[in-house]
Design a protein around this nucleic acid. Sequence first.
DNA 1: TGCTGTGAAACCCTTCACAGCC
DNA 2: GGCTGTGAAGGGTTTCACAGCA
Lengths: 216, 216
Amino acid sequence: MRDGRIPAATVSRLPMYLQALVDAAEDGLETVSSEVLARVVGVNSAKVRKDLSYLGSHGTRGVGYPVAELTTEISEVLGLTGDRPVMIVGVGNLGRALASYDGFARRGFRLAAMVDTDPSKVGVRVGEHVVESADDLAMVVADRRIGIVVIAVPAEAAQQVATQAVDAGVTAILNFAPTHLEVPAGVTVRTVDLSTELQILSFYEHLEGGRHLAAG
Amino acid sequence: MRDGRIPAATVSRLPMYLQALVDAAEDGLETVSSEVLARVVGVNSAKVRKDLSYLGSHGTRGVGYPVAELTTEISEVLGLTGDRPVMIVGVGNLGRALASYDGFARRGFRLAAMVDTDPSKVGVRVGEHVVESADDLAMVVADRRIGIVVIAVPAEAAQQVATQAVDAGVTAILNFAPTHLEVPAGVTVRTVDLSTELQILSFYEHLEGGRHLAAG
DNA sequence: TGCTGTGAAACCCTTCACAGCC
DNA sequence: GGCTGTGAAGGGTTTCACAGCA
């Protein structure tokens, strides 16, 4: 394949395959079959093969996929090879937890700045970082070539932060505020909302509860 | 409609509509049109109407949907009307941030327990809670009728926690560990992985970066 | 006239099933 | 024989377009 366009559903699974491949390499494996990858990631093996086929054909029939080569390939496709500076906006409980999250660094992302609007937080040390003023957001984005902004501010402030970030040239936003962000075409937003997740789970748990009662 | 089965895609949007309705009520609105809801939530208005039609027909042609009635209806469908005790497993940075997250309580969820395997953390106070031993997980789940478990432990420990929770009767898991959890049919797992999200964003940012270069 | 409710079309994603190659 | 790569079928989701009702 490799005609350029990778389906969104496939892109969202590439990080899982990457993780599975890293684990496989640690286990000393040189090749993995789609069947094994599928089991680890929790999907169907045909899906794995289809997904990987979009990256080009790296597998060998009768053998499987070369772990090292495929790891590199997926990393490149995801753009994880270079330096990926990230900024966190909002230094509340969540912002701090994110800052100390070691998965950041382990996956090639670098926490390059933390900013907050609250003057009493500016200058405070959080881990290895000193909180800077949100007033300087645009400057920081430009100077440090921030590509991804993590929004960890209250819902009311999220849109303003997003707009500022986009104006400063950011094209990718990870939004933890429980609100929809309006951004121009070409900017990607992914919203992660804890209470939304809990409510979705509540729906299914609710169903199951009913079934439990019905069953016994 | 209201024939019982609500599509998964619709369920995942109900919390957003609920939020929009709560906001509308605060603004003093008594009815909202699918057009307005769509704009706030960031989707197409036909999708809003289709989604809401699965809950039964509450709208009035020429007018819109009654805010109060629809709020109640969605809350009931999501199972948010009763007491919803939640347990957090893992009291690291993330677990602590989650514990202090006020969206929990505001959406009808009640943090009923926090447990950890680390003996040095057991007995420690976190907000209004005292950390309990993960050894007592099954007992706590049963005693406090925990329906949803939030897993905030390292990837290596996540499966074991999930298995224990499921054995204790839990049917809904919110998993923050970057790993696939194997659970029996009837148990719902939603995995939220920060580095997965960043990697997906990286893909699109990477694309945009390329476009920027191409454009000028 | 305005907005809902919904068949029908279009689209995307998943799964099957097997040809093709090692 | 084993496993990939992929056409084709199947299922789910989104969007269109408009009939129908307040």
